[in-house]
């Protein structure tokens, strides 16, 4: 059997954007969770900027290893992304704890 026919029988289609947005809109994010999402977004942009600004000098495979070509620094970008994602997840988790505590307090008041 053709490889693509085999894949066609088993593959799952992508979700609609509308269904995704509807699911996301169901959740009300508090200020901590929004701040966490903002940190992740900013870290992505800063990673790209820093990767280009502090570009690495990779050994040239054509002119010999003594010469180098300045290229985009993926490792620096990934480091910034990793740190930003960790901080964003931390604030997001903090926001979720706050949400749960608010939920408990409202149930106790009833």
């Amino acid at each position: 059997m053709n490889m693509f026919e085999d894949i066609e029988k088993q593959k799952k289609d992508l979700p609609k954007i509308k269904s995704l947005t509807n699911e996301v809109q169901k959740y009300d994010l508090n200020i901590y969770q929004k701040f966490g999402a903002l940190i992740i977004f900013i870290s992505i942009i800063i990673g790209i900027i820093l990767g280009n600004s502090y570009n690495t000098c990779t050994p040239s495979i054509t002119y010999g290893s003594e010469n180098c070509i300045s290229q985009f620094d993926f490792s620096l970008m990934l480091e910034v992304w990793f740190v930003g994602t960790m901080m964003g997840v931390l604030f997001f988790g903090l926001g979720h704890i706050v949400y749960l505590l608010n939920d408990i307090s409202s149930k106790l008041k009833k």
Binding site: D6, I7, Q10, K11, K12, D13, L14
Partner: peptide, 8 residues
Amino acid sequence: VGKKYFNY
């Protein structure tokens, strides 16, 4: 797994 999530 790869065949199922081929589009992703």
